[in-house]
């Protein structure tokens, strides 16, 4: 099988590491060769954070370049727009509609572009936009929007549900498991 590429993007602190861990677990359990590439350190402090997940018979490069991603999963609208060029023709763009002002917008040096959702829809990609933050709050905490989005992704793909449930059990502390399972289901239903 040809290597597939998925990018998980968001703002530092939004929980992209857990999302990529869940996905990595599912793919490994499916028997694929998997690579997950993360960014640690300075950029985690409220900056743009990008995680690459690649899988197939044999994966070499851990990074994804422009025009290579089969799917981009974004926790924030501006980050979805920023990573649009990485998407392959006909790729899936899954994004939360949450907007977080970056510092240049906060200081007034730049403006947050208006109606990004509409512009992304017009860009000719397969867009799924969900209010992941509200769904996460419905599940019990705003922090679970990462798992909501993985639920959306799960609904678009056909990996067995059992693998996702196992991955949740392995990656989430028992105390937060029920809440995250609920967030995952809400994401699946939201697609």
């Amino acid at each position: 099988m040809e290597t597939k590429s998925i990018m998980i993007v968001g703002v530092g602190g939004q929980g992209s590491l857990l999302a990529s861990r869940l996905l990595g677990n599912v793919l490994l359990a499916q028997g694929y060769d998997v690579k997950v590439s993360e960014v640690h350190g300075m950029s985690q402090r409220g900056g743009s954070v990008v995680t690459y997940v690649k899988y197939g018979d044999k994966v070499y490069s851990p990074v994804i370049e422009k025009g290579e991603a089969d799917a981009v999963i974004s926790f924030e609208l501006l980050e979805a727009a920023r990573c649009l060029p990485f998407l392959k023709k006909g790729g899936h763009l899954i994004t939360s509609v949450q907007q977080i002002d970056p510092m240049p917008v906060v200081t007034g040096a730049a403006e947050y572009p208006a109606d990004l959702e509409g512009k992304l829809r017009d860009a000719g990609v397969d867009l799924v936009a969900v209010d992941a933050l509200s769904l996460a709050e419905q599940a019990g905490t705003a922090k679970a929007s990462n798992v909501v989005l993985m639920g959306v992704f799960a609904a678009l793909t056909d990996f067995p549900d059992e693998l996702w449930q196992n991955a949740l059990e392995q990656c989430v502390p028992p105390k937060f498991l029920e809440l995250n399972k609920k967030a995952f289901e809400l994401g699946k239903a939201a697609k």
Partner: peptide, 19 residues
Amino acid sequence: KREFISLSENIPNRPPVMC
């Protein structure tokens, strides 16, 4: 060289910040 799509929109940077 691979083809890709991008918005004509100016996308503001998101540098790291103090929490």
